[in-house]
Design a protein around this nucleic acid. Structure first.
Lengths: 203, 203
DNA sequence: GCCGCGATTGGACCAAAGGCCAATAGGCGC
DNA sequence: GCGCCTATTGGCCTTTGGTCCAATCGCGGC
């Protein structure tokens, strides 16, 4: 794996602030990409590596909160650190509820800013690690895994997928091997609740 | 089960506001207890039923945020909805990071206030349900459960506890019966994995 | 003192999970 | 066509999990 440096995506309509932030973060060893508007950022192909957003709240067009709401639907979205000029408390609360890592006020203290960026990248790293372990799975294996973490037994999974119990065992073994989970408990934790409201026994 | 009404604990040093909130929430069918200071609330024996805190931020002595920090250590603490007079964004962000359900500004809109209270009580209900299922377990059963959700096999658990595999099986069966979990996966989700804390920031 | 409950263990038995070896079939790229 | 990967299934055997029945021991309560 290439060890690309973490990338911080700065989105702010204030040119001078944008450049100042870029200097600061570059000096810290981060790769930096800057955008003067959310639209400009959205035009960029989505980043799938280690990184985070440093996002201004008030901007013409799609503002920071709107961008967050739009990105929040995607579980693969980058963590967001907000920078606000003159935002109010309801805005900050809404942002935090939607999963923002932090919500800083301008002028932002360098120390706080870097701490927030660090936290965001940490969250992203955990996110990527979780995905990476599931990425190697084939569609069938993913399907079997989904049912396994719902608590179904091999026999039930086989019936539901219209295949043999033997085949399920094979897929299951592959899932354990590829994800690196050493026990069913570990697998369940890896995929997080996995199943929603589905309960075995009724079928 | 006795169907006690949900209780809202109002902590605010403003007498008239406290009474106004009490009237509003009583009219909504909630039981209400009011306190003029965090110290007065702390003197009260902890509530173990359905309820939440409606907490003012700025108060003489221990303020709202300090109380939250103090209570947050306890996993059994009541969910908190903040009410702030003239707090700033960093305070609201800190409160949300520590798991506050919401952070409202005075004067609070009745609709928003009731929605926040409702959300807090919902969170509390889920919290209680989780606890209730673990409450019936004996110390030994809890111990076995802890190791089970860590992914250890019966034999390993037996060795670690210095007992027989047979005994572990019995305890394990009791755990499944008392918690109502119908599969290992369900049990793991119930107790959250043993190593992970909780996830504040979830919508 | 007797009873109930939790913790402990035993044996027997069945169901489920997992490992090992082998095989067939379809799709994809060189 | 040949090789590789994925999905599929088979058999065989071992380990593990789960259930039923039965028993001992200690502790707190009636």
């Amino acid at each position: 794996m290439a060890e690309a440096p973490p990338t911080v995506f700065i989105i702010d309509d204030d040119d001078s602030l944008r450049r100042a932030l870029e200097r600061l973060l570059s000096a810290e060893g981060y790769a930096v990409e800057t955008f003067a508007s959310t639209e400009a950022y959205l035009a960029r192909p989505p980043h799938d590596g280690l990184g985070c957003l440093l996002l201004d709240v008030a901007m013409p067009g799609i503002d920071g909160l709107a961008l967050q709401a739009r990105l929040a639907r995607d579980a693969d979205a980058l963590p967001i650190v907000f920078l606000s000029g003159n935002a109010d408390i309801p805005a900050s609360v809404r942002a935090m509820k939607l999963g923002a890592v932090d919500f800083l006020t301008k002028p932002a203290d360098d120390e706080n800013l870097l701490a927030a960026i660090g936290a965001a990248l940490g969250r992203r790293a955990a996110q990527l690690q979780g995905q990476a372990r599931l990425a190697a799975l084939s569609a069938r294996e993913r399907e079997v895994m989904r049912l396994v973490v719902q608590g179904l037994r091999n026999k039930q999974i086989a019936a539901q997928l219209g295949i043999t119990e033997k085949t399920v065992k094979v897929h299951r073994a592959h899932v354990m091997e590829k994800t690196g989970a050493r026990s069913l408990a570990e697998l369940v934790r890896l995929v997080g609740g996995g199943g929603t409201g589905h309960q075995p026994g009724a079928v």
